[in-house]
Design a protein around this nucleic acid. Structure first.
Lengths: 147, 147
DNA sequence: ACAACATTTATGGTATATCATGGGATTTTG
DNA sequence: CAAAATCCCATGATATACCATAAATGTTGT
């Protein structure tokens, strides 16, 4: 949960927000990150979340499962484990930082079982887009009691 | 549940009304708050309410769905856990206070499974608006009240 | 009914622990 | 051996826990 802005130093080091860390630490000591398929951001989650995704798709009878299978392969090929050090930081790779256009600052955005890491300006725009979109679809949101 | 007016100090601390606290404490020791999507107020609920919503979304769309991505970003990106201290207070964030235009005082308004936190003046206007709206949409009520 | 007392609640202030972040030391790798 | 990646320590900032007072509410006894 939550959106948090942290600094990224010259080595690509960035603190995983403490709230995130607390949750991760209950289950593991590392996370998995990969380039988002559709957005200019980094996605992160626990390894077990990716594993679950893979098995879900394997057993799926969905007509489009072949497409999803390809997408899954893309993610697995890209994904890399990141352990956090004693002060709670991970060091992101050039490939990931470049994809998300991150230099000095990174915004962590909670997504429940996953999270995203954004360039601050890009996230600002994306958030505005999402909120506008959600307002347009407000009737369906209402039934789900978001607002 | 009635509406309760409490002070907000310089740190953003505010007492959760005792009635609210009693209900929350039966189930948890913390609440979740987020900016209302359409109104200038803060909304609060139990975490399980958001979790339920998230699982609803997960089962209704697939892992790669853009709609799901947007919704989960909107919900979990904005929401934050707030534990209350030994005296029953939570400390609201700048983002939330700014959205609701709250400075010194905050009004708690019960909404069943949720509640809202308002700037007192804004709530006064909103309540008037709601009452006027109710009358307009129920002419039959009006005639009965006149008689 | 009223007074005296007790308990819960709200609020202000201060101390403490935690977190984010910079710099440097140490290890690994090619 | 050089370059890079990883680990460890120091510090300032921030948030959290703790204590102390004040107000409101509730309770008891006469």
């Amino acid at each position: 949960m939550d959106t948090i802005n942290n600094k990224v130093d010259g080595k690509g080091r960035v603190s995983l927000p403490s709230d995130y860390r607390a949750i991760v630490k209950e289950l593991s000591s590392e996370i998995v990150c990969y380039r988002s398929l559709s957005l200019p951001c980094i996605e992160g989650c626990l390894e077990e979340t990716l594993d679950k995704l893979a098995s879900d798709i394997e057993t799926s009878t969905d007509f489009f499962s072949e497409t999803q299978d390809n997408l899954t392969n893309l993610i697995f090929g890209d994904a890399k484990r990141f352990a956090f050090d004693s002060t709670g930081r991970i060091t992101l790779t050039e490939k990931l930082l470049k994809h998300a256009q991150i230099t000095n600052e990174a915004v962590f955005v909670g997504k429940g079982r996953k999270f995203q890491i954004w360039n601050p300006e890009n996230w600002e725009k994306e958030e505005a887009r999402i909120r506008a979109d959600a307002l347009k679809n407000r009737p369906s949101l209402r039934t789900k009691e978001i607002d």
